[in-house]
Nucleic acid binder design. Structure first.
Length: 507
RNA sequence: GGCGACGUGGCCGAGUGGCUAGGCAGAGGUCUGCAAAACCUCGUACAGCGGUUCGAAUCCGCUCGUCGCCUCCA
């Protein structure tokens, strides 16, 4: 596709991406509830929207990317009853709730950084925006779409549904929700309708996290934070709202309703608060969704260390990232050790090729263009751009990158003084390949830390390789092999080529 | 039950009606002191059954199966 198209969950179609106020783009993504270590699912969501952030930026847009940290209001059980997730964890760990939130915010950011996920422009916390949330709730009450009950405030879905359509994002209608939940009505709920959801909850005496409000001392409901914070930083209408598919209902549905109710959007406006709603799919394990509540979620730290019963080994953060990018973000992605090891191997192969790519010097050689090589490298940018424009199809981008590997390797290993590609084509391709690898996909090679150390190591390696070369010239195979074998044990692999010996870090 | 996805070669995983996706694993070969890497070749896959079409993995229908949301989850 020549222009960027994104799949919009709201319309269930791919649509051309047209920002409201180019070159500015506003994007809001639902971040984690910080009561535990981040797992593979968090990584997928963060990576998916990191790709959106990176690609839009690379296209010249000025993106304001807001990703929230939920540190209050998210309850353990069903809608609007029971404990706060953070408070429950705080009791378990015998900590202040804010200590829990801070701790897991830190680990989240550390893990995301390890995955080379760019920090968003703004990472607001729910507890830092209590006044904004109270203000939003007040507006909703004033507009007639919420009511106070026993010190708590609930969103009045039925009243909202008279002016707007509740359920259009997730394809539900209110009658169905009512019909299914009839039994719940029997209980002495504070709610008028089972589909109503809490905007503000009065705190029970044991509840630690509490703030003053016009209605009671309490805390905000889960959904309102996103409305308040997106409005504050992106305005009442912005471009992209993202999150995991499991947030489609009720979270995003509630958010659309709140936002319309609060900001008085035109009924039936397709655009609502955000024009494009993007949802990443789930990670599965043996076909089953990985989720905290299912107990089969693996922490990212466990991946990095290999300390989990389901893991056969440790996996580097870049392996995880590569694995995620090999699938499309709207498909489920099935995790397994073999799948991950395949990604590890594949990334390693690509890394080797990139090292060779950087070592190629086309200058001073006679040009003998080989048509298929020229075509392959020359059409690279066009092809990967096409793939990215088609709803961020990173899987196709990576496949196309692999298509160039054979050419790269052959150019590198070619003997003689001819070069099979026009130097301009080659140099432009090399530049673009790095842009795609590093800037678009956010992949990185290991040896990017400490230039001086790298130079020292290069010198040491040169020394060793010369020693080995001497040994080989003297047909002292035992010594030559000893050097190679010892290096392998230290994680360095050797490759003898016509022009000398290359070395690589073993993955 | 309601809403929605999906079923692709040993595994993972793209597929815009006609052109080899790609990766991993496997087989053979070239190269090589050995090894590794690289390069070349190899599987003729699309749940099943119908239909539309000159032509379908791709569109339509039915059947079977799997999964997600409907309660907290990225």
């Amino acid at each position: 596709m020549d222009t960027l198209h994104v799949y919009n969950s709201l319309t269930r179609r791919k649509e051309e991406f047209v920002p409201l106020h180019p070159p500015m783009v506003g994007m809001y993504v639902c971040g984690p509830t910080v009561y535990g270590n981040a797992h593979l699912g968090h990584a997928r969501s963060a990576i998916s929207f990191d790709i959106v952030f990176r690609y839009l930026s690379a296209q010249g847009y000025r993106v304001r990317y807001v990703r929230n940290i939920t540190d209050v209001g998210h309850l353990v059980n069903d809608g609007d009853e029971g404990d706060s997730k953070i408070e429950k964890q705080a009791r378990l760990e015998q900590l202040e709730p804010m200590e829990v939130a801070q701790h897991y915010t830190n680990t989240y950011i550390e893990d995301m950084t390890a995955l080379n996920i760019r920090r968003p422009s703004i990472e607001p916390r729910a507890t830092g925006h209590i006044p904004e949330q109270i203000e939003a709730i007040q507006k909703i009450i004033e507009n007639g779409y919420a009511y106070v009950s026993e010190g708590s405030v609930y969103f009045d879905v039925q009243s909202y549904n008279k002016d707007f359509t509740y359920g259009k994002l997730s394809g539900r209608d209110l009658d169905n929700i009512l019909a299914e939940s009839r039994e719940d009505l029997e209980g002495q709920s504070e709610k008028r309708h089972p589909a109503d959801f809490a905007l503000w909850k009065k705190a029970s005496p044991s509840h630690i996290m509490r703030w003053r409000s016009p209605w009671s001392e309490g805390f905000p409901g889960w959904h309102i934070e996103c409305t308040a914070m997106s409005t504050k930083y992106l305005g009442t209408k912005y471009d992209i709202h993202g999150g995991g598919m499991d947030l489609l209902f009720p979270h995003h549905e509630a958010e659309i309703a709140q936002s319309n109710a609060c900001n008085c959007h035109e009924p039936e406006s397709l655009h609502d608060e955000a024009r494009y709603w993007l949802h990443n799919n789930m990670i599965t394990y043996e076909g089953q969704k990985m989720g905290k509540s299912l107990g089969n979620a693996i922490d990212l730290r466990q991946f990095f260390t290999g300390h989990h019963r389901l893991l056969e080994k440790a996996y580097a953060p870049m392996t995880i990232r590569f694995f995620v990018l090999q699938g499309h973000y709207r498909s489920t992605l099935d995790f397994s050790n073999t799948a991950l090891m395949a990604s590890e191997k594949a990334l390693s192969r690509m890394a080797d090729a990139i090292k060779r790519l950087d070592g190629i010097d086309p200058h001073g050689k006679a040009i003998a263009v080989q048509a298929d090589f020229e075509e392959n490298l020359g059409s690279f940018v066009k092809d990967v751009t096409f793939a990215m424009n088609d709803d961020f199809n990173t899987a196709r981008v990576i496949a196309r990158m692999f298509d160039t590997l054979s050419v790269i390797n052959q150019l590198y290993k070619a003997e003689g003084n001819t070069f099979a590609v026009q130097p301009d084509t080659f140099l432009e391709f090399r530049r673009q390949f790095h842009v795609v690898f590093s800037d678009w996909l956010g992949l990185e090679l290991d040896a990017e830390d400490g230039e001086s150390k790298q130079e020292t190591l290069d010198g040491v390696m040169k020394l060793l390789l010369n020693l080995r070369l001497d040994a080989r010239k003297n047909k002292n195979w035992a010594q030559a092999d000893q050097i190679r074998d010892q290096l392998v044990k230290m994680g360095i692999k050797l490759e003898d080529t016509a022009s000398g010996t290359d070395w690589y870090w073993e993955q």
